[in-house]
Design a protein around this nucleic acid. Sequence first.
DNA 1: TCTGCCGGGGT
DNA 2: ACCCCGGCAGA
Length: 500
Amino acid sequence: MMNSKRLLDMSAVGIRVGGASKQAGIDQHAEGSKGRKMTVASTADSGVILACKNGPATGAVFYKFVLDDGSLRECTRQDTVLNVNDLSSGREKYHLLNKAGCGGEADERNSGLTGILTNGSPTHCLIRKGQKADRHMHSEARTPLVPSGCQATNGQHVPPEERYPHPSSQIPVPRRRKPSGLADKEVMAATVLTSLSISPLVLTHTQTASAAVPEPASRGWKEVLSTSYSSSTSGNWSWDTSDQSVPSTPSPPLSNDTSKSFPLSSQGDNVIDDVKESTHFLFEDPIPRKRKNSMKVMLKCLWKNCEKVLSTSSGIQRHIRTVHLGRNCDSDYSDGEEDFYYSEIEVNMDSLSEGLSSLTPTSPTTTGPPPIFPPFSHAAFVPRSEPAHIVMRGPQGHAPSLLSQSAPSTLCHIRTDHAYQGPLTHIRTVSFGEKRQPAPHTHTTICKTPPFTAPLPKPAPGTRKPRGEAKKCRKVYGMEKRDMWCTACRWKKACQRFTD
DNA sequence: TCTGCCGGGGT
DNA sequence: ACCCCGGCAGA
């Protein structure tokens, strides 16, 4: 990917550095939508600087190059495809791709840039996947690099200090997507799948050709590819071809980089958006699990001094939004920057039935006050999983800021026997949360003044660990190679090698 | 019926 | 602690 050509879409301009695996630093000076002046500092060792400006009236674009030998060259936008090889010293080839249009139509699929410049028009939120903000990136570029296109989406202006996600353990969840046509989603999904099935080589070729492909033919690609980097100006869709949400696929650790890259770039947006999608589906469509006996999964608000228990995630989120976040009770509106702290618990309805027979959980959609359960008793509540600390991030991928700081401090890792939970808990299915778990401040693993610190009662008789999906030693090695089994398997205990 | 694994016992 | 196994329960 790094050696793929690089396209910088400055609403009209792409710069392609062929063959060079260097990371481009970006400097940007935005001067509004009319007059604009942008400067791109290319690779440090290439010595190439591209300056772009256009006049407010003429719209003519001039590109200024500082070549390796120090000479200056200028060209105009009309040079649709300019091979700068003949301009340069010949050591490297620099291509200029002048792309028509601006905004999300640009093909950014193979962009090797760490950021996309904005120019006042609907802009991108493009950060090259897997790259943190380049050290060459100038400070001036940072703020504009915040996906201003997304800002335009909700029309809100957020102070800069709130724009960048604080590297915390919070699990971001998707902001509410605006309803869109099902057909659109299906088309999008199909197109994304199609794009995934095509090798990067083909993509590169397609990308190269796309400059000359008529718009209708390349539009589908461009839409998909642009959304691959969360650059859709609508801000309603994001997808990434690098499946970071698969826990079984080891990814480069984020723990160290996130703290740096988050404040510096919008790279986190991609990741966050990934998680957003994952968690969105997880919450919208939780994996059905077997419930034994009369155990029912409830969601308990973990806000301080709040014992609210609701039966649905939407209900608990609404509760948090309205009660703790002070949102408008009447509106389901979410500005996308909310912290949701709640824990999934199992409620023994039998134990509750005596005193709470009249307080059966109600759907949050029903009018009237939601049920409030009395303080928990361990006889009735069996914590099932880590508390779900959910952060609704804004379109800018802002830091949770104050909301997180006011978060409950009593989060507790309730049950550590992950073998019993495995990927079943929604936290563990979220790659982002998974990566962040080692963070020392991870809420889900820190136990402070926990409300459930009392020795947990053993699982009630009859509660058995659900069978794992993974093949165990017995199946993998067979009876003949029993000596290759893990010890637990040999002892007919829970397999330790192939945990779920 | 196969398989995972809990619970219990033996050393 | 290590090892084994009866038996339960899910697939």
